[in-house]
Design a protein around this nucleic acid. Structure first.
Lengths: 345, 345
DNA sequence: CTGAAAGCGCTAACAT
DNA sequence: ATGTTAGCGCTTTCAG
């Protein structure tokens, strides 16, 4: 590999062709999976390419193939560690399948037309939305322009594939866990303007409580679905002075704030006086200070399903979009009175 | 905007040209910043484009301009929330400047040639590395191929711009904070195989302790720079039964695990028996259960500097790469005996 | 200010 | 299996 060749002008397939004594097509075929080239030719081409430091220009290839393999990752709250993990996994899985993840950060209040523009500008092969942005228009536009779209934990939309956790089961597991822990009167801790998936969880929980003979005595809310929201929810809970003996926090971050507020500023002990269940199973839930019983949303399954759904739509644009439901499971820890992890280790 | 026009075949500049009764060049100019078009022509073109739902094909543009505006974001541990936030901010800032962030996830043990390939395949305008991957080859290759590269919190390398926090100040602030909190004998909590930036912090701390008359009585290590690593470091600390009255944890996650281990499984009270200082100021550090004094690494400044450094190298490839040092500051909380946030609120 | 023509680097029919 | 030819959609001299 001669350094003088690398710098300055870029080496193209015609350079390689010349050097290998073949046509450009031969070069192209050599670098195209499943094209027919004589082994001997291919070898010569590869050698020449290597000597020259040649790399296929994907932009040019995409232009002529009319297919980019670019996938837009529409993302908002990366500070939410569960979502960050999801993005990370999506990116890895896409790369493994030879797609190129493309970040489209977005603000909740930002208009989506901007996003659509970018997708179309770059001719993306597909898009995955994990943000909280209400994707109403986005789905329409993508459908109109034939861009395969996958929504993760969003309200299902026509023309878009959907991956979402089994929210009914979330509600059932939460209620069951509290019931089994001996609760009689339970409450919800949630947020003021719940996203679709959060809302589903809540509703499921409210459905299952009566079935299990649990009294639902309140829904205490914070502003956002994060730690501070949990603190606020706990404040509301404390003010209300309910006789609740169990709480389902609709998301783990919220639960952590909730727990912390009880511990620092009230006499209520968890799990002694109150049992708490969260949802997601973020890493922090297992920390010694929290030891939170929660409902695990397996990000591996979630991202597998999302990528599957996307790929199958890219491969067959006419196929009806998949609608995948991800199983969830209860992870019992100290906040419902199970053995404290600290005792086990 | 006629829907029949949008579906099926893509609308190109020639369609717009036809409809507007001008040449393709006119269309091109209309969508090129700072090109000279008669206001009246421009208007007609815009109208036609809008009616047809035309968008410039950036791939084609990039191909002919030989500049893509794609920026590779090389990233490894997104589960580390500080890094996730950095990625998020980088992406947002790049988009704002009309660059397109492109995720290149990588594993610590994966070979970098793979990454270089992707960058070259897509002709990226530049790259930012935030992962822990030893970027030795990556820097070389990028330099060899003229790809502007920015390293964030990495060991400086020839030909690459570098953005890193002021590690000397980190060490000084940590030592000073412990000193002011009344410590005499201090220890480090760190990890087995520290990254470059972590190592810098350690060394700085070790330099400054003697200057302040602090005895450094040990360096207790966990496997990784995360929560579990902190727990392990605390175990080591407890086993050693040192007389330390202060600990500098080289990173906040580590600090949280360290604190938790002390609280759950020892009689040592923080800040009563032991003062603890972390580094980074991640969101969790401010949580009620931790209330950790720490040294803030401002991700906003960090990412601003990284983007600046990148852009200036893209704009002028011959310029010598910038080397930016980010200021840090002490955030005092309860773990060094300052007023507990819980009391304030 | 505008249009014509050449070219960015690659692939895909179509012949051979 | 290989080469030839004609694009992919856009920009950019170069004339006018």
């Amino acid at each position: 590999m001669d350094d003088r060749d690398k710098r300055g002008k870029t080496v193209t397939s015609v350079d390689v062709a010349k050097r290998a004594g073949v046509s450009r097509s031969a070069v192209s075929r050599t670098f195209t999976a499943g094209a027919s080239v004589a082994p001997e030719t291919r070898e010569r081409v590869i050698a020449a390419a290597h000597e020259l430091g040649y790399r296929v220009n994907m932009l040019a290839r995409s232009l002529s193939q009319k297919r980019t393999n670019l996938v837009a990752l529409v993302v908002s709250d990366m500070d939410h560690s569960f979502r960050a993990a999801v993005i990370d996994q999506l990116a890895r899985k896409l790369v493994r399948l030879n797609y190129r993840p493309f970040m489209l950060p977005t603000d909740p209040r930002q208009d989506v037309s901007h996003l659509i523009d970018m997708m179309l500008h770059y001719n993306v092969s597909g898009a995955i939305v994990t943000s909280d942005t209400p994707p109403a228009e986005i789905a329409e536009e993508c459908a109109a322009h034939g861009v395969p779209l996958v929504l993760v934990n969003k309200q299902p939309m026509d023309g878009a594939a959907n991956v979402t956790l089994d929210s009914d089961k979330v509600g059932r597991l939460a209620a069951t866990a509290l019931k089994r822990a001996g609760c009689k009167r339970v409450a919800l801790a949630s947020q003021k303007r719940p996203s679709h998936s959060i809302n589903q969880r809540k509703q499921a929980f409210m459905r299952h409580c009566p079935e299990l003979g649990l009294d639902l005595v309140g829904d205490f809310q914070g502003a956002a679905q994060n730690y501070d929201g949990g603190v606020e929810a706990a404040d509301a809970f404390l003010n209300a002075q309910t006789a609740a003996d169990g709480v389902f926090c609709v998301n783990d971050y919220l639960a952590l704030g909730f727990l912390d507020r009880l511990r620092h500023g009230s006499d209520i002990r968890v799990p002694g006086d109150l049992r708490v269940v969260g949802c997601d199973d973020i890493a922090e839930a297992a920390w010694l200070s929290y030891d939170l019983t929660t409902i695990r949303q397996d990000s591996g399954l979630l991202t597998d399903a999302a990528v599957d759904a996307l790929v199958s739509r890219i491969d067959d644009p006419e196929a009806t979009p998949l609608n995948t439901v991800i199983d969830v499971k209860l992870v019992e820890r100290g906040s419902t009175g199970s053995i404290h992890v600290g005792d086990a280790g």
